[in-house]
């Protein structure tokens, strides 16, 4: 895989009420119609969705539901790739990534084949379901393996373009979908997008954290850059924007996941990094996603306090 960043194009036109999961299913079903190489592998999750059901009726050999067998789902996706197909495997993040981690490592990585993995659930989307359905560590797990592209869309309109682009390659691609979303979509170029410019630290907001970051920084002079592709990270953009050597990372998954990337990018200059993200803790709590944002310090008030303290 090359180190160049993917150029994925503009946000796609989808209805404003569509969720990221709906946007994914629509785009995947279109791909099944258009590209005979594409096959979707499911483990019951999303199998009942009408677009997938319709695609399964029309292309029964390429919409494959293995039942509640996530390890098989991921291995079978690897086996499909070995036969020359372009597999898309999809389930809840903890089952797709954590339960089947060795299958990802060995049946894509070690076999030398690619595939597209698309999760829902994120860090605490189904907060009422509790910790069994949370996957704050998924992106960190992909960091244990070489050459995965990781997309963290912040809006449903940021889903279809990267998925279509990924289907045209043989790359290893992970898409982390969430029910948390920003009010407006942004371009999906693979590069950092500057949302506002200021004098203080560079604040990098990843995916659905952007709106909270904008609220948190409303009264202060900082540069806010938005990332919805985090691997490969836009190192060039980071170096160009981190004028002060002070970087605040706000990530909707495990806190500090991208600290290593920032440290490597700025190795040749003095720098400080503040990492804000999901804490390494099982809270044993339910509530709403907004409650979890507050408990983990990803709410606007806490982000604001931590940036103020860091910049002092």
């Amino acid at each position: 895989m090359t180190t160049s960043l993917p150029h994925i194009g503009h946000p796609m036109k989808v209805p404003d009420t569509t969720t990221m999961r709906d946007a994914f299913i629509d785009a995947a079903a279109d791909l099944i119609d258009d590209d005979p190489r594409v096959a979707v592998v499911l483990a019951d999750i999303s199998n009942g969705h009408e677009r997938f059901a319709q695609a399964a009726r029309e292309h029964p050999d390429r919409v494959l539901n293995v039942g509640i067998r996530e390890a098989l789902m991921v291995s079978a996706a690897g086996g499909l790739a070995l036969s020359g197909m372009r597999p898309i495997a999809h389930s809840y993040a903890p089952f797709l990534v954590e339960r089947a981690y060795e299958q990802i490592k060995l049946d894509f990585e070690h076999q030398g084949v690619g595939g597209i993995l698309v999760s829902v659930g994120a860090s605490y989307d189904w907060s009422q379901g509790g910790y069994t359905h949370f996957s704050p560590g998924d992106v960190a797990l992909f960091d244990t393996m070489p050459d995965w592209t990781v997309h963290v869309p912040g809006h449903p309109k940021e889903v279809g373009g990267p998925l279509r682009a990924a289907a045209l390659t043989d790359d290893k691609v992970y898409m982390r979908l969430s029910t948390l979303s920003n009010a407006a979509p942004h371009q999906t170029t693979g590069r950092l997008s500057v949302i506002k410019s200021g004098e203080g630290p560079l604040v990098v907001a990843v995916g659905p954290t952007l709106d909270n970051v904008l609220l948190a920084t409303a009264g202060i002079s900082v540069t806010v850059a938005y990332a919805n592709t985090v691997r490969p990270f836009d190192v060039e953009g980071l170096r160009a924007l981190a004028h002060t050597g002070e970087v605040v990372l706000v990530e909707p998954y495990l806190e500090g996941t991208s600290s290593r990337v920032v440290a490597e990018a700025l190795i040749d200059r003095p720098h400080r990094t503040l990492a804000i993200g999901v804490k390494r803790v099982d809270l044993h709590k339910y509530g709403t996603p907004t409650d979890h944002e507050r408990w983990h310090g990803l709410d606007p008030a806490t982000i604001s306090e931590r940036i103020a303290s860091f910049a002092r």
């Binding site: 005979p36 096959a39 592998v41 050999d61 390429r62 494959l64 293995v66 390890a71 098989l72 291995s75 079978a76 996706a77 690897g78 086996g79 499909l80 790739a81 070995l82 036969s83 020359g84 197909m85 597999p87 299958q103 049946d107 076999q111």
Partner: peptide
């Protein structure tokens, strides 16, 4: 499990 995927892929092709 890999063979299951390859079997499906061959059939689809």
């Amino acid at each position: 499990p890999l063979a299951v995927g390859t079997a499906l892929g061959l059939r689809a092709q």
